[in-house]
């Protein structure tokens, strides 16, 4: 029988390239049967707010949006999935997306502003329960 592995990802950055790496790992893991939990805190919460993935900037070479435009054009040309598409795939493949309750309170983010793929709101304890049992852990 195949051994079931688990993974946890903490996304605290709101930049497109970091969120992209996080969601590539999450969807890739789901495809390989690795049960994944993602926790969105601080600037990372913006990525799972409606419209947040679209408006995320690059962490480097953003150049007032010009760099991002160029990267987006290159991604399209090379058939690389967009961040929004990967987020949708993560939801469909059963990746567990958890929004940080404290950040929501701090930044006045209502539940209704989150994308439908986020089915859970939790605190540090919720995430640590998953992280304590996980075989793989990433922070972005």
């Amino acid at each position: 029988m195949v051994e079931k592995k688990t993974m946890t990802i903490l996304l605290h950055s709101g930049e497109m390239d970091k969120a992209f790496a996080a969601f590539i790992l999450a969807t890739g893991a789901a495809a390989k049967g690795i049960q994944t939990t993602m926790f969105f805190t601080f600037w990372g919460l913006k990525v799972v707010q409606k419209g947040g993935a679209q408006s995320a900037k690059l962490s480097n070479m953003n150049m007032g949006g010009l760099g991002k435009m160029m990267i987006k054009r290159m991604m399209k040309k090379k058939n690389v999935a967009s961040l929004q598409e990967l987020i949708k795939d993560a939801g469909e493949l059963g990746v567990r997306l958890v929004a940080c309750e404290m950040t929501m309170d701090l930044m006045n983010v209502p539940k209704e502003s989150l994308i439908p793929e986020v089915k859970e709101i939790g605190g540090v304890g919720t995430f640590l329960d998953a992280a304590a049992q996980s075989d793989i852990h990433f922070v972005f």
Partner: peptide, 17 residues
């Protein structure tokens, strides 16, 4: 056809599901 990483893997898994 034409898809880049990690889409072929994802689409395979979605189909199997």
């Amino acid at each position: 056809l034409g898809m880049n990483c990690p889409k072929p893997l994802i689409e395979t898994r979605k189909a199997l599901n």
